[in-house]
């Protein structure tokens, strides 16, 4: 009997169920707290999911990593696979703003590659300053790309994809919490609308896109462009950068 339960818990059902529950709790917390920044559904989902697995491991005298692999991963992998079509779908918002993109495509590519390279340099510098290990530093580099693209890039430069995923999630949380303040302090409203949109889309992923849209149509359009182009830029820049400077 106990064996059947264990076998069944190792089916995809468990991982899917845990993911849904923690995300729903996150959504509920966002709602009742009126959007308090630390109650971002994804952040809550991630922390709560890990806590559930840790408690499960304590209760069964196993390790969190083992419980994760055996019981969470089968379902987690199913959800994870659907990131492929979802990430691919970012081409659609890009195509919708194709008029603006075609007008400035060359500038956008220059901005993303030059800006991306400078950012990589500064991120590595800060990582060194805080004494991060080589693996963690490598995981920090591709965080501007969308999560599904950033993780394989991190793996390619000997980083830890899980840390990169956390970085992408926290990027969005930071932008959600600080965007208003940063926009004011940095004078982003007075800067070029193209530049502002691109920077919000790169630093804050989809959350940045929402913030950019609240500033104006061009900013919103540029954030949609940024998601695609920054992913491409990081895919090319990070391996080259890691090869040259790490």
């Amino acid at each position: 009997m106990a064996n059947t339960i264990v076998t069944n818990l190792a089916l995809p059902f468990t991982g899917i169920f845990i993911s849904l529950i923690v995300y729903l709790i996150g959504m509920w917390l966002t709602k009742i707290s009126n959007g308090f920044f630390l109650f971002n559904p994804l952040l809550v989902g991630m922390v709560l999911g890990i806590v559930i697995l840790a408690i499960w491991a304590k209760g069964t005298g196993s390790t969190t990593a083992a419980v994760y692999k055996k019981f969470y991963l089968p379902g987690g992998n199913m959800i994870f696979w659907f990131l492929n079509p979802a990430t691919m779908a970012f081409a659609i918002p890009l195509y919708r703003v194709n008029d603006v993109f075609k007008k400035y495509w060359f500038d956008i590519i220059v901005i993303m590659f030059v800006g991306g390279f400078i950012s990589l340099f500064l991120i590595q510098l800060v990582s060194k300053l805080f004494g991060l290990s080589a693996a963690s530093t490598a995981s920090m580099l591709p965080q501007a790309a969308t999560t599904a693209v950033a993780m394989p890039i991190a793996a390619g430069v000997h980083g830890v994809p899980a840390v990169t995923a956390m970085a992408c999630i926290l990027n969005a949380v930071v932008i959600y919490a600080l965007a208003e303040f940063l926009i004011k302090v940095l004078g982003l409203k007075k800067l070029s609308a193209v530049a502002t949109g691109l920077s919000l889309g790169s630093a804050g992923h989809t959350v940045g896109s929402v913030k950019a849209l609240s500033l104006g149509e061009v900013q919103g359009a540029m954030a949609a462009v940024a998601v695609v182009i920054v992913s491409l830029a990081m895919d090319i820049l990070v391996p080259i950068y890691a090869h040259l400077f790490m």
Partner: peptide
């Protein structure tokens, strides 16, 4: 699919459970 994307990122976040040592 884009509307679902925040939820689809949940497993990527929980992945950290296998790297708690870091």
């Amino acid at each position: 699919m884009i509307g679902l994307i925040a939820f689809l990122f949940v497993p990527s976040g929980i992945q950290l459970a296998a790297h708690l040592d870091i």
